[in-house]
Write a protein that binds this DNA or RNA. Structure first.
Length: 584
RNA sequence: GCGCCUGUAGCUCAGUAGGACAGAGCAGUGGCCUUCUAAGCCAUUGGUCACAGGUUCGAAUCCUGUCAGGCGUGCCA
């Protein structure tokens, strides 16, 4: 469709140029001034522009008059892009694409295949940080949403031509992991005590982690190291073991969701290499630091923050914020020019100070973009399933995935705008009747297309993607042409989803186009793509309309390409076949 | 108190660089299976786009105020 829009814009520009010179106007109209987009309502055509309304004052004509000048100019010239042009309402100009454009579109899709919808590479490097869950236990459902959204955004941005480094910030330093290590130690002593009652247990740490998984880490530790630490705590040993163990679990969960990161960035390493000191030095030299009550403060109020923030506590320990400044500085130093962070919505108060620190160091506040991922509430009927790692009472992401599967999990996380609090109703995702399950529906269009193509290959020994344009002229049904237009829109959908960081736009597209396809399939049962088994009597191929079938098969190949690409952007699998409920 | 997000059909949500009668899924109602998978399709019910003003030829979309919900407002991360 981008292609058609470009062609049409040029035609319109030429006509407008003539109008301008004919009327001695001092106006320059450029390509950017013409907005061509598909109208909401199908009856209004395939592409529409409000140009006549927007430029009526500048061109000193009332909108309808201007529109009619443009239309008559276009008609006089003749066009290969549209077959009909009309004026409607207050001055919209509506175009109906010529079928030749649609057939060319099909050819382009077949030629592009997996690259259909992919945009040219752009300069610049984006760093996309997401999940970054503390390695203190299994991921919970909220992390899952961040993971699914982040990974899909990464895929979509790459498809839109951006260079993206996906990154997980590993908080393996600081208090949370200390708490975890102590918690594991406490459980470890409990285990030892059961075996040998002379081993004294300790009081469970106040801020400790109460989850069952802590026992399991402690148990693993005991199996590996025995009773070696029954009388003395070694923080480093327990911390390393606990982090390793938690991280292994997190990586396993991410793998189940088909999510991989380019970089796991360790906070501990950041400290080791002196990044905090380096960042502090910059701020110090620029005069943005001061001491008060024994602590070092950053003057974030100079950059619009509510209050100044502590970087070094009065006990000499750096804050999490101090490390985060160093980390973000490091991202720039590694050559990224735009940073995107996905944070839980509860961290939104953190944005002003983070931006302030970057501005203080000489970067632009807009170089850091924060996507806030709103909360997920798990609901199952009337039952509300609570979350919260420290209370120990939560549904893990692993449990969710094992109940409904990775594809359905990702779908629900990604099908809604990340900016909206999500009520994840398990009763729908778990529904025995898959017709209620939009995730399955989104995949089913693709599976159905594959299924038809598989059957077709039994009947025809041909590559359906090699079709000549004459045969495509056999696609004449309204549904076929409408679906073709949607498939041609896919690159724009990708572009829009990328620039608004909105995977759900891909999800909506997928549902929409799948519905059109399923509708087509059912509506034309009496005019099937392939001969039914009862129609395949000896010599059927001599009387069958093979050209129409081949045209449709090429078109179905397109559908498979488009839906496959869309599913892939969401991180869902593209099944070739799905087991029918009747077959189970 | 202040700040951020949200308020669209019974439910869950699309729809914001302003545009042509406000959309989908689920739920409801009525139809369609000797199937190229009924995991589907067709028809139909249902909304003063929280409320009140304002800007505009035109507002769910922009501005102001009000109300309601969520979150935040640590020398926690």
């Amino acid at each position: 469709m981008i292609h058609c829009i470009e062609l049409l814009k040029n035609e319109i520009l030429e006509v407008i140029g003539n109008i301008v010179t004919d009327n001695d106007l001092e106006v320059t109209v450029s390509e950017k001034d013409i907005i061509l987009s598909p109208p909401k309502i199908k009856e209004h055509g395939d592409l529409s522009t409000n140009f006549a309304m927007a430029f009526s004052k500048k061109l000193k004509k009332n909108p309808r008059e201007l529109a009619s000048l443009i239309v008559s100019g276009l008609n006089a010239k003749g066009s290969r892009v549209f077959s009909e042009v009309s004026i409607a309402g207050p001055g919209f100009i509506n175009f109906k694409l010529s079928t030749e454009q649609l057939y060319e579109g099909i050819q382009r899709i077949l030629a592009s295949k997996k690259s259909w919808g992919k945009h040219e590479e752009k300069p610049g490097k984006i760093n996309l940080e997401f999940v970054s869950a503390n390695p203190t236990g299994p991921m919970h459902v909220g992390h899952g949403r961040g993971a699914a959204v982040g990974d899909s955004v990464a895929r979509i941005l790459r498809f839109a031509g951006y260079s993206v480094t996906s990154e997980y910030y590993l908080n393996d330093a600081g208090r949370q992991v200390d708490n975890l290590a102590k918690s594991v130690y406490a459980r470890y002593l409990e285990i030892l005590n059961k075996i040998d009652s002379s081993v004294e247990t300790i009081e469970f740490p106040e801020d400790g982690y109460h989850g069952e998984y802590v026992y399991s880490i402690a148990n693993d530790f005991f199996n590996e190291r025995g009773a070696e630490f029954s009388t003395g705590y070694n923080e480093d040993v327990f911390k390393e073991f606990a982090i390793e163990s938690a991280l292994t679990g997190i990586k396993k969960t991410l793998k189940d969701l088909d999510i991989t990161f380019d970089v796991y960035y360790s906070e501990k390493e950041l400290h080791k290499k002196g990044a905090l000191e380096s960042a502090r030095e910059i701020l110090e030299n620029k005069g943005f630091l001061y001491e008060s009550e024994g602590a070092v403060f950053f003057k974030s109020t100079e950059f619009g923050d509510e209050k100044d923030r502590v970087l070094i506590r009065s006990n000499g320990e750096p804050t999490y914020f101090a490390a985060d400044i160093a980390y973000h500085l490091d991202k720039f130093r590694r050559g990224h020019d735009h940073l995107i962070d996905l944070w839980g919505a509860d961290h939104h108060g953190y944005i002003p100070r983070m931006r302030a620190s970057l501005e203080a160091m000489g970067y632009s506040g807009t170089d850091l973009e924060v996507l806030l991922v709103q909360f997920v509430s798990l609901v199952k009927g009337d039952e509300k399933l609570a979350m919260g790692k420290r209370s120990g009472n939560f549904v893990t992401l692993d449990e969710l995935i094992s109940e409904i599967g990775s594809d359905v999990t990702r779908w629900y996380f990604v099908a809604k705008s990340h900016d909206v609090a999500l009520d994840f109703d398990l009763s729908q995702a778990l529904s025995e009747d898959p017709r209620e399950n939009p995730a399955k529906y989104a995949q089913y269009g693709h599976a159905r297309a594959c299924s038809i193509l598989a059957k077709a290959h039994e009947l025809y020994e041909k590559d359906f993607t090699e079709v000549d344009s004459g045969i495509l002229g056999r696609l004449t049904l309204d549904d076929e042409l409408e679906i073709t237009k949607s498939m041609m829109m896919f690159p724009q959908v990708v572009w829009d989803a990328a620039n608004t960081r909105s995977p759900h736009k891909i999800a909506n597209f997928l549902i929409e186009i799948s519905r059109m396809f399923n509708s087509y399939y059912t509506r034309y049962k009496d005019d099937p793509v392939l001969p039914k088994p009862t129609q395949q009597s000896m010599g059927w191929e001599l009387t069958w309309d093979n050209e129409k079938t081949l045209a449709r098969l090429a078109w179905i190949e397109c559908f498979k390409v488009v839906t496959g690409n869309a599913l892939n952007l969401l991180g869902l699998s593209s099944p070739q076949y799905m087991t029918s409920a009747q077959e189970v």
